[in-house]
Amino acid sequence: MLTTGVTLSYLIAAADLPLMDSLLARFDHSLGFDWEHFLEITNSEPRASGLLAWAYRTTGWVTQLAVVWAGVASNGERLAELLALLGLCTVGLCACMFLFPAAGAFSYFDPASQLFSNYGTRDQMWTFGHTFNMLRDGALSVIELSSLDGIVSFPSFHTILGILGIYAARDVRWLLAFILPINVIMIVATMPVGGHHLADVLAGGGLSLGAIMFVRSQKERPAPSPVFLQCSL
């Protein structure tokens, strides 16, 4: 499912559609959010930048923890719910990427190196940029399924995974106490570490919450009454 979504994102990026980063940056500005200033502030405190960078790297194994727990709880019902949510969000993510293609805030603002010196080198920031640019200029024409990169900027897939992980652990106190703070910090980290606009994060949050409400509404619908066909002999 996720491999299919990532492959589709590659094809969308290869379409070389006009980028919408200027629109997303203006939206952030209308909310009073200055991405470069936020990057500078978080970078100025080494402990804060270290925590954000660490939390961003936890996304994979924290998500795997949520999936494993869902698989062993509720006789698989929670796992089916989580997979349905991931499927819906993946479809929505690709649709949003097609409508609002973006390279991300790091590419758009191209910040000076001193603004992210405590996060890493330029090569370590916006790590999917090389693949993204090669797809757009046609230099990359073969998709290697064994080495796919996440190249979606709008909406933020890390934000989606963070919210779905919290939702999956919602009624298990010990698991929620572990996942909630890590994923909240990780979602914040998507902006300075992942190079996302605030708009990317808000869109990822809206998409995941919308998927949750839709799946819950389907679960709460009454089951249809069985129809018995009577045949007279």
Score class of each variant (00 low, 15 high):
G71S: 00
L17E: 04
L180N: 07
V152E: 05
G138S: 01
A199N: 01
I179G: 02
P101D: 00
R47W: 11
V91N: 00
P111K: 01
I182G: 06
G210C: 04
C89R: 04
R57I: 05
E144S: 15
D16T: 06
G129R: 15
P181I: 09
S113K: 13
Q64W: 11
G60R: 12
V68S: 06
S117K: 09
F27P: 06
V6Y: 12
S232I: 08
A189W: 06
Y10P: 00
D137M: 01
T7R: 01
N183R: 13
L31G: 01
A66M: 10
P224Y: 13
A189K: 02
F27Y: 12
L233E: 08
A48R: 09
L65N: 04
P155A: 03
W35A: 05
L202H: 05
A203V: 01
A177P: 05
T3V: 11
E81R: 11
I12Y: 03
A53S: 14
T63C: 05
F128C: 10
H197Y: 15
S30Y: 04
W174Y: 08
E45N: 04
C94I: 07
V6S: 08
S141L: 10
N118T: 07
Q230K: 10
F38M: 07
F228A: 12
A15Q: 15
Y56K: 11
A139F: 03
F214W: 15
F228P: 05
E220S: 14
L148E: 07
A70L: 03
R47Q: 12
A112N: 10
V67P: 02
L24M: 01
R122M: 04
T7Q: 02
C231A: 09
H37S: 13
T127K: 15
G92K: 03
L2R: 09
Q218E: 13
T59H: 12
L83G: 02
I187H: 10
A73D: 12
G120H: 03
H37L: 11
A139K: 09
W61E: 06
R47C: 08
A211H: 07
S113N: 08
I41Q: 12
G50E: 13
G92P: 05
V67G: 01
L8M: 12
S147K: 14
F128D: 09
M20D: 06
V201C: 00
A80Y: 12
T58K: 12
L52I: 05
G204A: 00
C89A: 00
G194D: 14
L140T: 05
L140Y: 00
A53K: 14
I163F: 07
G150D: 07
S156L: 01
V152Q: 02
